[in-house]
Amino acid sequence: MYKYIIKRLALLLPVLIGVSFIVFTIMYFTPGDPAQIILGENATEEALANLREEMGLNDSFFVQYSRFIINAVQGDFGRSYQSNRVVFDEIFSRFPATLQLAGIGVLLSVLIGIPVGVISATKQYSFFDNTTMVFALIGVSMPNFWQGLMLIMLFSVWLGILPSGGYGDWTYFILPAITLGTSSAGSIARMTRSSMLEVIRQDYIRTARAKGVLEKNVVYKHALKNALIPIITVVGLQFGYLLGGAVLTETVFSWPGIGRLLVDSIKQKDTPMVQGLVVFIAVTFSIVNLCIDILYSYVDPRIKSQYK
């Protein structure tokens, strides 16, 4: 098992080099002069030229990329053009806000999605099933940013009971968490239902019922446990996606997380910040994926034997 984890982490390295190459290339071709961004609109031509020389912006693409990679391997992604803070200091100061929101959002979506999916599957084509699946589909189809705006309009503007944005006590978490939670809940409920439906028709479920096992135990111990793999996959993917900064939700609610930081950095051509953020997001995403794979082996011991 440990061997497997180490192997997976080692495989991450080439992916990260590739990711950094793609991001570097894209940012290299993005219009805008970093020297101008740092020194501002009123800088003299001479000062700009000096800074460009100092930053090595006149070097060729490959020289610049090699320098970037050599520094990055040592953990140095440079400083933000905007705030002049060390890139990873800035990211780590913003990440807790994203992590909290992602955690609460996923928790909410699991608490809604899995029970709804299980009940829908056990009562297929019932009124409950039909109604909740319509809502789940609406939840999946609703753009997050629009839902966020509608919640702000209802609870902040009209009713005036919740803050419309920003970061603070628990009341600030409610609207963004509902926004993230409901759409994820939709996909989790749909996946739970279809996975349960496949399991519930298996012979061993019929055997369990025939033996007289309580329906509650049939559903939760025999069926749900075996239907968990695809559900874990969806939950994990949603969590990974939210950790990468729910860019739009964070923008709508002025949430000080890494998603909004990334949007601002891309708009301002803050290259070091964008590089650091994308690499950071790729790492978190891959680690979440690895955790899902490890979790599989606990849910289904047969999978464990494949991890060598």
Binding site: G18, I281, A282, F285
Partner: peptide, 24 residues
């Protein structure tokens, strides 16, 4: 497929944001 894995490691909306900023 390893190239595809690299692209998959970047959330698609972020990749689209970066590309559209570069291209205009």
């Amino acid at each position: 497929m390893r190239c595809m894995d690299i692209f998959l490691a970047i959330p698609s909306i972020l990749l689209a944001m970066a590309i559209v900023t570069a291209l205009g």
